[in-house]
Design a protein around this nucleic acid. Structure first.
Lengths: 354, 354
DNA sequence: TGTTATACTGCAAACGTTTGCGATAACGTT
DNA sequence: AACGTTATCGCAAACGTTTGCAGTATAACA
């Protein structure tokens, strides 16, 4: 009776039920878990009271006892980012399926924040980590420390070649190569490549793909057609291509490391009177939503974000539940990209392959 | 010596340090916490060994003891969504600042998943919740239950008028009104409104803003200019406006509930030979990234996503740390939107206000 | 009556940490 | 010599739950 007057009712515990029913805590626990040792009659009484009190087991106590939290954490350089959102969606899907909670944090490509977050996330709360390192992460001592501590983790999207650990990445090399081969098949011959500063692993792989495609089709490599940009924005792409055109450089196509760069390139070409795709072909990378919205629509290399997230999560949970450390479980899964041909690179006529 | 041969070294505990140093666990704990009761000499030895063993306190034990996890959880309808990403970024920023971990989950606007996730997230692991209900959430018993349990939570973005709880929302009404007034000021008179099925609180507020603007400027309300669509995609916007044009309906502008709808509308108008913004004005809602990329660029109402996330998080953490339940802390923060005028609605001439 | 099986239920330890309080020694003071 | 002070450290309880083991009562059987 009087208990109801209490404004702030404490969370009920097994002990409360036990005392109310004059039985032991152990019995309550077993009754709620439908243990055969407990009589049906008592089970009923216990469950009744548990429902009335709105009893929910205290997960902090459970995970403390089990030393398992059923939580994993994601370390991502960016949150407001179409591709990373996609990956996160895949992670959440798989985690939900397996009953795991997912903590998220953003590093903004800053090593300090990366280190800080990883440290905070590993102080016992999470069973494992999904990490995408930042573009500037060359110092990998924090990852090596993770390994030493035996904390399960999986690297995703960005490869870190210097560390042996489970990884899930996208086949940037083949993706880029396929894209450039497509441009070549469409008859473009002077294909420029727009990339960022080039330090990131992905950038290098895509450049290699570009080079391989040229080589395979016996197209001479022109160094001046590969542009390193500080920025991967639309404006940067626009500016780069405009300068090239102004300088009189012969160029009839662009393969860009980003959809945004590609769109900038496309706009610059059009602004200078070139028709896309007739005079100028463009292929981007990532298949952002905007690729379908620009005119002409942008051909691009799609990365399987959801699949990547799912795969990484599956691997991580497997490591956790089999108690395998990252060290003894190094295997790199490479996911296929898919070339999506849209209007910006499809001349709609049969092209003789050289 | 032999311990080093052990392949899988267990995580060191205070007990391990204590035994190695032949002192009590309590002393180790105090030494590491720099308690004045412990001699500097012993502190040094303890810290030395702790460092050597790479000791990190077990957070599960800590949070179990304190019954505080320093974790909050976010329940969001969508993950791959520009606006929600922005909000999440704000949440993560504020949480990082205050040392909280953030768990995330996606409901996909499905009530069942919403209920399930909220239940899972509240079984003790999180100190509080940030919830954006789905569009179809009319049954709010799960929220009422949260209140009864005294678990702190803040509703964000979507208002749920039937429940008294702390909320952070955006001023959809004024945002919509300002947008429509802008169209009116630009001289448009036959302004259509594209909305979704209209059940969501935000949809209703925006419709009201639309109506208020018309009324204020003495423009007769034409019911047939308000279209409820099943879908908020570009295609849906395109189709809706195309049908209107074909039907011969007089219409010279669109205010859409979404940037995507607005872009669809714009493309439809242009496809039918109308010049934007000369013959046809368009304003969207949300300021997605694509708004700047379409031609002409899209005017839109920007929602302060980061600010919203930060505000909600601040409120939640305050509730947690002051032990205020959602019931006794109901206050609704309404954040201002900002009209961003771009090419799709700016006729670039002085317009006499009627 | 004694033995054994059956059906329940409770005791207590364990998970790792913190912390109030009590204990011990060394040293100084009277 | 007796007492007080100070510095240093340990004991044990507490947080909520699970679970192996032991215990008790009842009933069935010889």
């Amino acid at each position: 009776m009087a208990a109801n007057f209490c404004v702030k009712m404490k969370r009920p515990r097994l002990k409360d039920i036990a005392e109310a029913l004059q039985i032991s805590i152990a019995t309550v626990s077993r009754a709620l878990k439908n243990h055969p040792d407990i009589s049906d009659q008592l089970k009923l009484r216990v469950r009744q009271l548990a429902d009335d009190l709105n009893y929910e087991p205290n997960n902090m106590a459970l995970q403390f006892k089990a030393q398992r939290s059923k939580c994993i954490a994601v370390v991502s350089p960016r949150i407001v980012h179409y591709y990373f959102s996609t990956i996160l969606k895949g992670i959440l899907q798989e985690a939900e399926k397996q009953g795991y909670q997912v903590a998220v944090c953003e590093t903004g490509h800053e090593l300090i924040r990366e280190v800080k977050h990883i440290k905070a996330l590993t102080q016992g709360l999470n069973d494992g980590l999904l990490i995408c390192v930042g573009n500037n992460t060359t110092d990998i001592r924090h990852l090596e420390k993770l390994q030493k501590q035996g904390i399960p983790f999986v690297l995703f999207d960005k490869d870190v070649s210097r560390i042996k650990a489970p990884k899930v990445v996208v086949d940037d090399y083949t993706g880029a190569m396929t894209a450039v081969e497509h441009l070549i098949a469409q008859g473009y011959r002077h294909i420029a490549h727009l990339q960022d500063n080039g330090v990131a692993h992905t950038s290098q792989k895509r450049l290699k793909g570009y080079l391989s495609a040229l080589k395979k089709h016996r197209i001479p490599y022109d160094e001046s057609l590969v542009l390193q940009l500080n920025d991967i924005s639309i404006a940067a792409g626009y500016e780069a291509v405009e300068q090239m055109i102004r300088s009189g450089k012969k160029m009839d196509a662009v393969f860009a490391i980003t959809d945004e760069l590609a769109i900038g390139a496309m706009k610059a070409a059009m602004a200078h009177g070139m028709a896309v795709p007739q005079d100028f072909g463009v292929v981007g990378f990532s298949n952002w939503q905007i690729a379908t919205l620009v005119t002409p629509s942008l051909s691009t290399v799609a990365q399987p974000g959801v699949e990547l997230g799912q795969t990484a999560t599956k691997m991580l949970i497997q490591m956790i539940e089999n108690e395998q450390s990252a060290e003894e479980y190094h295997l790199t899964r490479i996911l296929k990209t898919q070339l999506i041909v849209r209007d910006s690179s499809f001349r709609k006529r049969v092209v003789v392959n050289t």
